[in-house]
């Protein structure tokens, strides 16, 4: 019994310790992020690795999600004789929810895991310690550029996801099924508001970018410097950031779209 309690206490304290360290680490990134903007090439390199390399998966997934929305939405809406509202359904669900959330989930598994593995391996091969020996701050040189690269890429990827999804919905709804093109676009434009829907979606994706990048660099930096430790950290990145994205999405949605 006491052993059980001691075990529980140990678990709780170690979780709390990690949470505290993660918060301090978050502040340290901001403190040392001067370098990543002064030497912009470092950050651009990370935008390339996490943003440009995720382009294909984001665009193709966006297209397919939009196409599925078009099919399913049409199937339900035509029962009520309002198939013209398909544009609204596709655009609102993508811009408000699916765009930011699914893009962030894909980004976490595509780019977040890669960042964790890279930093974790740098730690395991003692590159981070070597940098410290040379008086180079690894947070400024390695962590902050990767963090900002992710934060910059995420809103752009989410916007691309939504745009491709709407195109996919158009493809299925208008070209394939034959919903009237004029009402598809005009009803969409009449309902989707720039500030209420699109800007809120961009704010969401920005927050998700911060979450994914933070979790990824922290898990990498905190990884046990062994092969096993790095693989565990990579798994934790995907699990933790996916859960954090969904939880944050609920909070943000409750704040943004409450009852209006």
């Amino acid at each position: 019994m006491t052993k059980l309690l001691a075990n529980l206490g140990h678990q709780v304290t170690s979780r709390l310790w990690r949470l505290g360290f993660a918060s301090r680490f978050f502040l340290a990134i901001f403190l040392y992020s001067g370098t990543s903007f002064r030497r912009l090439q470092l950050t651009l390199r990370e935008v390339f690795f996490s943003g440009v390399m995720s382009l294909i998966i984001i665009m193709v997934s966006g297209l397919f999600v939009g196409m599925v929305l078009g099919l399913q939405g049409y199937d339900t809406l035509q029962r009520y004789g309002s198939a013209e509202a398909l544009g609204i359904l596709v655009a609102l669900s993508l811009v408000r929810e699916l765009g930011p959330v699914v893009a962030a989930l894909l980004f976490a598994s595509r780019a977040g895991s890669a960042i964790t593995a890279e930093i974790g391996l740098m730690k395991a091969t003692e590159q981070l310690s070597a940098m410290e020996m040379m008086a180079v701050n690894p947070i400024a040189r390695v962590v902050a550029p990767r963090f900002w690269g992710g934060v910059i890429s995420m809103p752009l990827l989410a916007a691309l996801f939504s745009a491709m999804g709407i195109f996919g919905g158009y493809l299925v709804g208008v070209v394939l099924i034959g919903v009237d093109e004029g009402s598809f676009w005009s009803q969409m434009q009449a309902t989707v508001d720039f500030r209420e829907d699109i800007v809120n979606g961009i704010i969401k994706s920005f927050v998700f970018g911060v979450i994914v990048s933070w979790v990824a660099v922290f898990e990498g930096y905190d990884a046990e410097p062994t092969a096993e430790g790095v693989s565990g950290a990579t798994t934790r990145t995907v699990v933790t950031s996916s859960l954090a994205i969904l939880a944050a999405d609920f909070v943000l949605t409750a704040l943004m779209f409450r009852g209006v």
Binding site: A163, I198, I202
Partner: peptide
């Protein structure tokens, strides 16, 4: 990315 935002702003939203 910016073109996608512009598309959302002009073609999708009002």
């Amino acid at each position: 990315g910016l073109a996608a935002v512009l598309f959302l702003a002009l073609k999708v939203g009002n």
